[in-house]
């Protein structure tokens, strides 16, 4: 059994390390620091941590001002609030002036679980990737999260980092490369490519193993940790090499990774393609695993979709 750590936990640890290295790093939260894990930073560097209370719009605007004055702010809250509630602030105060604000949003996706649909951000990738200047990271495990957090400091301009609540397997060891905008080939394969992001990379790898064993299908897995700028070259290459593509994301099938891949392939190299993701529905309360299964995002669901897309492959 692989080690498990949630991406929010990894974020919290990475922030403390960054805080030690760079005194310009500041952190803002909106009364959720224990959940988003910015609490670690707040204990280590209280003078550089600002709890803005339950006032997310002001938090984003304040982060913009800090960045305009040369600081490197990380602003955290749940993804549903970080993108929905503060959309205009992120758009007009952060993205338009291209300020160095990292919006690090936890509890994204349906695996928020029991809190229900009001707290399950399933549209945040769509909302963020449509903003000019914005970089969008959806890390697949703990180590990749740490790398993404570090990359956010280096990137000139705003960055959205999508983080999750549940503990998920560690996929990458000590030696791995994280290049923003460059997808990672997480598994080789020749019949089909599953392009996934976030915790769905783990499910995609599980599905690929099942397909190999049970069906003799060889599925490649491409970890698309950066949704924007999108690694179009790797997508086209995958389509050319395997002739079929399935996308997998813990996000609405509208507007997220699946849409981004479809846009790319539609304009370059159309191949049989299907999307795994949240149907056009709000979620509900439940255990994360139950919800993933019920709404069609589990490894076995990916498996079934892969088989279907393969029937369309010439």
């Amino acid at each position: 059994m692989a080690d498990k750590i949630s991406t929010r936990e990894a974020y919290g640890k990475a922030l403390v390390e960054l805080g030690k290295e760079n005194k310009d790093v500041v952190v803002l939260d909106a009364d959720l620091s224990k959940s988003t894990k910015t609490v670690n930073f707040s204990r280590e560097f209280p003078e550089r941590f600002f709890d803005m209370g339950i006032a997310e719009q002001n938090m984003m605007g304040t982060a913009a001002g800090l960045a305009a004055a040369g600081k490197i702010p990380f602003a955290s809250t749940f993804a549903v609030f970080a993108t929905g509630r503060t959309y205009d602030q992120v758009r007009n105060s952060i993205a338009y002036p291209a300020l160095n604000v990292a919006v690090a949003a936890s509890h994204a996706g349906i695996t928020v679980g029991e809190d229900g649909a009001s707290h399950q951000a399933l549209e945040d990738i769509a909302l963020m990737r449509v903003l000019p200047n914005m970089t969008v990271f959806v890390p697949a495990d703990g180590p990749q999260t740490e790398a993404a957090v570090r990359a956010a400091v280096e990137i000139n301009g705003p960055v959205y980092i999508r983080l999750g609540r549940p503990k998920i397997p560690v996929l990458y060891g000590d030696n791995f490369e994280f290049i923003p905008g460059k997808a990672v080939k997480a598994r080789e394969g020749k019949d089909v490519t599953i392009i996934a992001c976030g915790l769905m990379v783990s499910y995609a790898l599980e599905a690929a193993d099942q397909l190999e064993k049970e069906e003799g299908v060889s599925a490649a897995v491409l970890d698309m940790h950066t949704i924007k700028p999108l690694d179009a070259a790797s997508i086209v290459e995958a389509a050319r090499e395997t002739g079929a593509v399935v996308t997998a994301e813990e996000h609405s099938i509208i507007g997220g990774l699946g849409s981004a891949v479809a846009e790319t392939l539609g304009e370059t190299l159309p191949v049989p393609m299907m999307r795994v993701g949240m149907p056009d529905l709000f979620g509900e309360s439940g255990k994360p695993d139950e919800l993933i299964e019920n709404y069609g995002m589990s490894a076995s669901n990916i498996n079934a979709v892969v088989k279907e897309v393969l029937t369309r492959k010439k």
């Binding site: 002001n58 984003m60 605007g61 304040t62 913009a64 001002g65 800090l66 960045a67 702010p73 105060s93």
Partner: peptide
Amino acid sequence: SAANGMALA
């Protein structure tokens, strides 16, 4: 909000 951020900095 932005002014507050500048002032905090």
